[in-house]
Amino acid sequence: MIRSITQAKPEEEIDELLSGFGRVFIVGCGTCVTLTHTGGEPEVKAMAEKLSKKGKLTTGHVLLPVACDNLTGEAVKEYAGQIGQADVLLIMTCAFGVQTVARQVNKMVVPALDTLFIGKETGLGQFDEICTQCGTCVLGETGGICPVTSCHKGLVNGPCGGTNNGKCEIDEAKDCAWTLIYERLKALDRLGSMRKLQKPRNHQGEPSPGKFTL
């Protein structure tokens, strides 16, 4: 399943964002951030302890089942009392969750996490970005591997000169997308696809800010 992949913000940044606020209500989420151990129950409790040591008062906390879901509105109502006593909400969910909660309360919200990408767990504890939702899908010509997402330069006409033993020149931990595409197309006897000159990408197909009406 596709997940929102997050990382804890540096403690100093959270301290700065919370400065001037004495009473905090903490929100976690039972879905993606539980999987990445960034905003599940143990992290929410640890945060409450940490804040307490820093002299903040935690008015309460909640672990929403799916923070980005519209049902979040109902959950927030249930905690209206504790939220009402807080100066600020510290939200340990992805940015989708932060924005969903923000729409429901008339308080400042502080994200405790940075949302890195929408991705997939591809191995135990390993998450990869596989689609950037560019709006102009090229997978039909690349053997199902996305160079727009997986190449650091987003090149659509083949690899640059920096392929490094099948890895990307800027990060040895990342595969060169075009080496993968080449291997895949070779196995499928479709290398002809790589000869095609791809036109400049249509960035109007990229919905940012996306809005779609059925």
Partner: peptide, 19 residues
């Protein structure tokens, strides 16, 4: 343009020049 005959995979470097 530039060409790098030494980057891998080697076998795509000539097709890349052709492109």
């Amino acid at each position: 343009a530039a060409a790098n005959p030494f980057a891998d995979p080697f076998e795509i470097r000539v097709p890349r020049l052709a492109k």
